[in-house]
Amino acid sequence: MVAIQTNLPTHVSHAKSSSMTDKIDHTQLSAWLKEVADARCKIAFTHLFKFFAPKIQRIARSKFPNEAQSHEVVQDTMSNVWRKAHLFDSDKGAATTWVYTIMRNVTFDILRKIKSNREDNLSDDIWPIAESAAAEEQPYEDHLENKQLLRVIEALPETQQEVVKGFYLMEMSQEQLANHLNLPLGTIKSRLRLALAKLKVHLGEDND
């Protein structure tokens, strides 16, 4: 565990000594994180926990009505601090910024789970915690396909199909279509309108 100090936060008192808010001892926080990273030091972690956890809980309480959820934020944030300490780089920023990022990300994912019912944990993609040195290949799956609209169009009555295909796929104007199909413009418009209503229902269902 080496001889790095594991004292309680030293209350560095700067000029404004009357204030109740203490200046944060960034050097100390960074040193504890390094001990957790290098030696899995539980004492250093306990110091970090006692510094951050009550603050995280208070912040979380302002975002969640439910106390269990604010505990979840504390638990998940500090668990990430324990498991990701080796990713902290004191040259890149303060320990407070790093822990804040983890807390904000944990909070974001829990809120998203509640509001959108999604457990996709997007936060680390939106706000990456650390650049990874070894980027592993992940299987790539392309969800994009072009065929769906065509399938829906082909389910339309013949007369509507030719209008829709001409208008959207061949990008003809309604006037051009009227000439091409030798039909009154009004007929083209009403067929298009009918077809659009059906397309809307189909695509709306499948895409929303």
Partner: peptide, 18 residues
Amino acid sequence: LTEQVAEQSFEEDVISLD
């Protein structure tokens, strides 16, 4: 902004377990 917000978030606390 992140640095500032982080600093504010973690310095305001008056009563810690210590």
